[in-house]
Write a protein that binds this DNA or RNA. Sequence first.
DNA 1: TCCTCACGTCAACATAGTTGACGTGAGAAT
DNA 2: ATTCTCACGTCAACTATGTTGACGTGAGGA
Lengths: 156, 156
Amino acid sequence: MQKTASQVPGLHRASLRKLHELDGALELMYYGWRGMTLEADAYLATVGLSRPHHRILYVVARRPDISIGELIEVLGISKQALNRPLALLLERKLVAAKRSPEQHRSKLLRLTAAGQKIEQSASNHERKVLRDAFAHVGAPGAAAWMAVMGAIADNS
Amino acid sequence: MQKTASQVPGLHRASLRKLHELDGALELMYYGWRGMTLEADAYLATVGLSRPHHRILYVVARRPDISIGELIEVLGISKQALNRPLALLLERKLVAAKRSPEQHRSKLLRLTAAGQKIEQSASNHERKVLRDAFAHVGAPGAAAWMAVMGAIADNS
DNA sequence: TCCTCACGTCAACATAGTTGACGTGAGAAT
DNA sequence: ATTCTCACGTCAACTATGTTGACGTGAGGA
């Protein structure tokens, strides 16, 4: 047992000197991301999965019969990177692949019932964090948050 | 050359069916995080560094003479995980370690001039994204964003 | 003087990503 | 009809970032 510090799972926000006006916002983004995914990751670990598996489950849930190629595009990773986590999901029958009868050039992916259950549980953890946060600021605050995040996301 | 899709660096937001009310917010958080760090990561890559190095530089810049133990606590990673990236920063003389004269139980870390320059450049990329996004919504929107992110971050 | 234990380091391993190489089969070109 | 091409998916090898475990060292208390 060698963790004098950081036995806190949630990594309380550190107090750092602010060198720039926006440092606070910067740190909020960092800790916000961690805060949202913390419980979901812990849940996923209990079922032997992790973040990349969840991302796959999330997308497949919302695009049934998606092909591997499309999945790669949506996730923004290489097809080789997709291979291992997806193989695990298939092996554990959380995702089912069928080749369409006449067109068997690509595989079509779907969640099994078990896969759906895990996807929903994990995503629920994340949505709960957001729901609670939005409750603090009401609908206008939530709308403003969405607007800012949209602007940040669309930067590129 | 084998990337028919995803040659777009910025990974445009995918259009996924929304199964829950908060799915949009969930995805915004994901793409927002990516959006903020995208340019900074690209810059860091040009100088042979990456995200963990930047996090170290960021913290050390705001806590000069921090010890390794404190740094571990702030970053929320294990001291072994810190070891390799920090060793690189020391080797490249972006961070300097001095042992205090009488108390040489712990090392005190500081950025060198070169380290400061890189930290500022990388952080500037991230702050710029935030600044632009905030400009879209004005001060009240920014305040609401901060409030929501604070609530999300403090979840734990 | 000795014990303890925080500090920091090294070694071994897991996981998630990368690039490269390649088999296979659909569809186009000839 | 035959051949070419090339997208699709898979496998192998490698890199990077993290984990846990083991351990040397020296400060400070007993």
